[in-house]
Design a binder for these strands. Structure first.
Length: 595
RNA sequence: GGCCCAGUAGUUCAGUUGGUUAGAACGCCAGCCUGUCACGCUGGAGGUCGACGGUUCGAGCCCGUUCUGGGUCGCCA
């Protein structure tokens, strides 16, 4: 093994081309592959930019040649030599016309045989990848994803700086606010029995920064939520967080449309036409059964309620009698694309969203087959199909439930599932959408009260302010989400900036003045001293980068992600700690809870 | 907390109705090879079939439990 000892790299592996022929260059990197032909050895050297072929032949010094023959995959090398044109070129490699005739070779580190091959698009199971994440990250697709993430962060800083935003850091050790997601707690040594919480978002701090007069703030902010993971949810994730003063909804949207336009132009070379489409929450639910509709395909929902409310089929009529909903999607030409077995699996699919079943009608050209036609009169069936807009060859899929929420959730998911199965989604299509006018409140079955849909500092729409305490269900918020291809990229709102309105909001949520003071006193007190009208938005950086890089999991754009049970396989955390550490914190762990 | 999927060589996988010594490709090791580039050729090593228990004359295969990972519902102001 040799040291660098004054060796200076002149070039990255992926860059040398024909213009540099005859130059002496020096490169460093990892051995991708060796090809030993006896009297001739080729070594592919890899760094973050690409691969350069090192050549060893009868011109090569004997000692260097012998050294080259014992090189193995993932050894770390430094090589100096003269760049020369290859006698036979490799058109698949950017550097495929050149090679390095090596005159100096240093083996800087040897490597054990890696547990999996370091190659693009490897299909190795996730456990192993994550246990050896540092090797997984050597793969070119991971290198590209992480580089793309850097590029997005860089242009984010540039854009918001260009638009007058200050980047300001907010604390990681904060006060727990039990509304919302579960907090990660950090015990205090100095205050035994007391805890910090890691931030779920910088929400309250950024509002206070507006009150302090910074006018425009942003932060690439790490956030923590102790909830179960998904493909697009990690317990620790990054937000692009921003807040602006003296603005209303349109102002926040305008500055973010500029940002999104720049992201898509700089990263993907795509021109996003502005303004981005907007859709009120109620319309999104009605047409797509979702507050984050994927607009890359149709299959919109259709309300059958008034057509079936008096029909003889109890499955349809009873939900209508108890305030429920009966809706359908019509799949054009779907009659012959879904054999019985596929329909059965769609039935199972909607059941995972709480639907009790899925009624269907196939309008095949020869004959209609349906799971419910026999329960309806011919007139009722004709009216239903007319409402559904179904024509010969189509497939109609109906969900009926006493809970409108279940109908929306089932059909909203079903239309995406059907689109996937029929391959209706263009992977190169990017459909952005602002969903606006969210309800202020949603009813929590668990807590048996109305809770804030967004958070308790969200301002109601001006025309709905009077409904805050009189008709919560109808009260809409100055809240907006930005949706990309059916994924929530970010969301935000205009905030409440006057104490009167904030108190009214707390009353609406059922907090006593004491509760509110206990939980949010710092914010309430601050707002007595003149808060500017303000609002903002936060993007999920991981999701944004995931979608821009075409990945299907945010794990693939996070260097060191956690797995589904929130542990990290490489370092094996969380882990037990020494009892001394616990003693200092005044904490005790019973044997049962430790194991 | 619920549901679904997966676990066989270092890796990716195959493995028939439960039946002889569990296979392939890649990787690894050794030898040969002067223009390869997924080099080639020859030979070799490598397995607690995730774990435990059960059924059986006999289990990679059937049953139960459990572990690990993935997806998802709940959850995620």
């Amino acid at each position: 093994m040799q040291s660098l000892n004054g060796f200076k790299r002149t070039d990255y592996c992926g860059t040398p081309t024909l213009e540099k022929i005859g130059n002496e260059i020096a490169v460093c990197g990892w051995v991708q592959r060796c090809r030993d032909l006896g009297q001739l050895v080729f070594v592919d050297l890899r760094d973050r930019t690409g691969i350069l072929q090192l050549a060893f032949d009868d011109h090569t010094d004997k000692a260097i040649f012998d050294q080259a023959r014992r090189v193995r995959a993932e050894f770390v090398l430094a090589a100096r030599g003269v760049l020369r044109e290859r006698s036979s070129k490799n058109p698949d490699l950017p550097t495929g016309s050149v090679e390095l005739e090596v005159t100096e070779l240093r083996i800087l580190a040897e490597s054990e045989t890696p547990p999996f091959e370091i190659e693009e698009n490897s299909d190795v199971n996730d456990t192993l990848r994550l246990k050896y994440r540092y090797l997984d990250l050597r793969r070119p697709d991971m290198q590209r994803a992480i580089a793309l993430r850097h590029k997005v962060v860089k242009l984010t800083r540039d854009y918001f700086d260009d638009n007058g935003f200050y980047e300001i850091e907010t604390p990681m050790l904060t006060k727990s606010t039990p509304e919302g997601a579960r907090d990660y707690l950090v015990p205090s040594r100095v205050h035994p029995g007391k805890f910090y919480a890691l931030p779920q978002s910088p929400q309250q701090y950024k509002q206070l920064l507006m009150l302090s007069g910074f006018d425009r703030y942003f932060q690439i902010a790490r956030c923590f939520r102790d909830e179960d993971l998904r493909a697009d949810r990690q317990p620790e994730f990054t937000q692009i967080d921003l807040e602006l003063s003296f603005v209303d909804v349109d102002d926040v949207i305008a500055v973010n449309e500029g940002y999104l336009q720049r992201v898509f132009k700089d990263i993907l070379g795509i021109d996003i036409p502005l303004p981005i489409q907007r859709m009120p929450f109620a319309e999104a639910m009605d047409r797509f059964g979702s507050d984050k509709p994927d607009l890359r395909f149709g299959l919109e929902l259709c309300d059958l309620g008034d057509v079936v409310k008096d029909c003889g089929f109890k499955v349809f009529a009873e939900p209508m009698a108890s305030g429920g909903s009966v809706r359908c999607i019509t799949v054009p030409g779907g009659a012959d694309k879904f054999p019985r077995k596929q329909i059965d699996s769609l039935v199972e699919y909607v059941k995972t969203y709480g639907a009790k079943g899925l009624a269907w009608a196939k309008l095949s050209p020869d004959a209609m087959s349906s799971s419910f036609a026999k329960f309806l009169t011919d007139d009722e069936m004709a009216a239903l199909l007319a409402r559904a807009g179904a024509e010969t060859g189509d497939l109609v899929l109906v969900v009926a439930d006493a809970s409108e929420k279940v109908v929306f959730a089932s059909l909203g998911a079903l239309r995406c599932e059907v689109a996937r199965r029929l391959d209706l989604i263009d992977k190169n299509d990017y459909k952005l959408l602002w969903v606006t006018e969210f309800p202020m409140f949603e009813y929590s079955e668990e807590e048996e009260r109305y809770v804030a849909m967004h958070h308790p500092f969200t301002a109601p729409m001006d025309e709905d302010a009077a409904l805050l305490e009189t008709d919560k269900k109808r009260c809409r918020a100055k809240a907006y989400d930005i949706i990309l291809n059916g994924t929530e990229l970010g969301g935000g709102s205009i905030r409440i900036s006057t104490p009167d309105l904030q108190e009214s909001m707390f009353r609406a949520l059922g907090f006593s003045a004491e509760d509110a003071q206990e939980r949010f006193g710092h914010l309430i007190n601050a707002f007595k001293y003149g808060a500017p009208p303000h609002g903002g938005l936060a993007y999920g950086l991981d999701r944004l980068v995931m979608l821009l890089s075409g990945q299907s999991s945010i794990r693939d754009v996070i260097a060191f992600p956690k797995v589904q049970n929130a542990s990290e396989l490489m370092t094996s955390c969380p882990d037990v700690v020494e009892s001394k550490q616990l003693d200092e914190l005044g904490l005790k762990i019973t044997e049962q809870s430790a194991q």
